[in-house]
Amino acid sequence: MNKFRLLPVAILLMAGAAHAQNADSLLKTLDTADKRETVAATFKSTHVVLSHSSETEKKHDLDLRIRHHFGDIGGQFGSAHTLYGLDVASDLFIGLDYGVSDRFTVGVGRSKQDEMYNFSGKYKLLQQKVNEHMPINLTLFAQMGWIAREPFSNSEFSKYTNRFSWFFQSIISRKISSRLSLQVMPGLTVRKNVSDTRDPEALVSVGFAGRMKLTKRFSFVADYTLVNGLSRPTDLSQAYYNPLGLGLEIETGGHIFSLNFMNSEYILENNFITNTKKSWTKGGVRFGFTISRNFTLFKSKNKDPEKRSDIY
């Protein structure tokens, strides 16, 4: 019986508590913030240095990308005679990426090396979420390369399909903190146009990439792709090297400028994973840059005047 005497006291305390409830605690109980929201901007751009990042274009955004790789800074082809490679264009690229949806991007481009045209699809399968509901981003990437140049010899493209190469990659990334993002990319390149019979037509590669934000708009970016010693023997007559790129990325709201140094001569995966013949240690490093400009298409579809932005 005795314990029931405490009932009114308990109610009194509760009533007191309700009275003392202040604005702060009430706001806390009303909080409607999404506890499973996705983590945005693991990378600022769809590319790190050479490799793709896990990012895709936003829905209805069109990204125009222009990339340039200069010649060797040092070694036989470098030095002051070519102004440390600036006289040479080892590869040039112009491409367009379009966001069909926030998760699916299609791309088309053309690069100087082999006069290669590329057609690509990129799909964001998993998105990292806060509170560890989903720890990683997973993006799937596929790209077809088409060599459009004249054959160097009659036998080179004996079958027309030898002009095609295929590249498949799973891009796994994680935004560790607002400053640091890391990425691993296992991939497979399949091509017919192989100069050495011991060089396999199907090349396995594993890429590693990262971004370190220095300020809100400047980031240090790097990527490395391991190719030699996986499915490719390390003792081929032609020496191949693993591509390593380092760079600085500058974001200015709609534009991204990327200034890089890398040993790879070529820009597309179908070329640089299979054919990097220059080494960081032998003066084969070169300067390169990307200019990326974002356009928003179909903006007029937004009928809500409170969310509309206009450029004059």
């Binding site: 702060d24 409607t32 913030a33 936003k58 809100k216 709201g253």
Partner: peptide, 25 residues
Amino acid sequence: EIAFQVAVKSFEFDRKLMQEHFNEN
């Protein structure tokens, strides 16, 4: 007393890239 609170990420822009820059930068 009167109090308001909003999750900054709940703001919507017609350009998603702008929304990302709003939150990130």
